Simulated scan of single mutants.
Amino acid sequence: MMAKRILAAALASLGVAGAAQAHPHVYVTARSELVFGLDGRMKAVRHAWTFDDMFSSMAVQGLDANGDGKYSREELAPLAETNVTSLDEYKFFTFGKAGDKRVSFAQPVDYWAESGADGRVTLHFTLPVKDAAPEKGQPFRVEVYDPSYFVAFEFAKDNPAKLDQAPANCGVALERPPAPDAGQQQKLSESYFSGLSPGANFGAQFSNTLLVTCK
């Protein structure tokens, strides 16, 4: 499962620091597309998440089936499968809202993984809207974050978000989270997070928010 691979990468990065190491443990550079249907309503979110060097090197261990030192899409297929399967319990770190209604998403489709020239793994997947799709022209938001802050998301500097097949008068803006200040960073230890109550949703304060508006 992805959780096990994340844990393995985290343990490797902790080294002798052990429980004193602060969150987060895994870093993701993200790009997202909000896909619209012919009716002008959002029908899916298409993600591309590139993992940090440490996690990537741990995740691909044992997957080079032909031993050529490269990782094809076919060789990384089991990794993509286990990743999207285990992300279900975390709601795929993707939270939509239109007005006072929560937008829910179905199981991922069109998922695959690739290893770039720098060795970093990128997971691609599409989340179809399951329920409460925003009405045409209605403003809405899609937030990407890990409630536990074990995984930290940062959207890419170039082309971080875009709309696909949206009505001509619609646009998307990215609201980036503030970086943890010195006081926050000092308290983000393992002991601090182990003391949080279930459902504390600590990571929401570091949410990346895609804001869609139509004129």
Results as ranks from 00 to 15, higher is better:
G62T: 09
N159E: 11
S56T: 10
S191R: 08
N83M: 05
A30K: 04
N169F: 00
L210E: 00
G183F: 12
G15M: 06
A132D: 11
A152T: 05
S13H: 15
V26H: 01
G199Y: 14
D110Q: 09
P24W: 01
V84S: 02
Q21K: 10
G116C: 02
Y192A: 01
A173R: 14
F153Y: 14
P147L: 07
A133Y: 00
E190F: 04
A166K: 00
A10I: 10
K70I: 12
K70Q: 11
V144M: 15
R5M: 12
G40S: 05
C214Q: 06
V28D: 01
L163D: 14
W112A: 14
L210C: 03
L38P: 05
F193A: 08
F206N: 13
E135W: 05
E154W: 05
P177A: 11
V35M: 08
L14Y: 13
E81I: 06
F51W: 10
S115N: 11
A8T: 15
H47L: 02
P134K: 07
R120T: 07
A12Q: 03
D110R: 13
F125V: 04
V35Y: 08
L123R: 14
Y27E: 10
S86R: 03
F105Q: 14
Y149C: 15
A10N: 14
P134N: 09
A20M: 07
E74K: 13
H23R: 04
A22F: 14
L38H: 02
D53S: 02
S13G: 02
A8H: 13
G67L: 04
P180Y: 12
P178D: 15
A59M: 10
R46N: 04
A133W: 03
T50P: 09
Q205L: 09
D52Q: 11
V172E: 08
E143M: 05
L79D: 00
D88R: 13
N169G: 03
P178L: 07
E135Q: 13
R46A: 05
Q21R: 13
K97C: 15
F92D: 03
V121R: 11
G15D: 04
E89S: 09
S32H: 13
L174D: 03
C214W: 05
E154M: 15
Q185A: 07
K130T: 05
T82R: 15
V144T: 03
G203C: 09
A133E: 00
A98M: 14
L188N: 12
P78S: 00
P167L: 04
A98Y: 11
P178H: 07
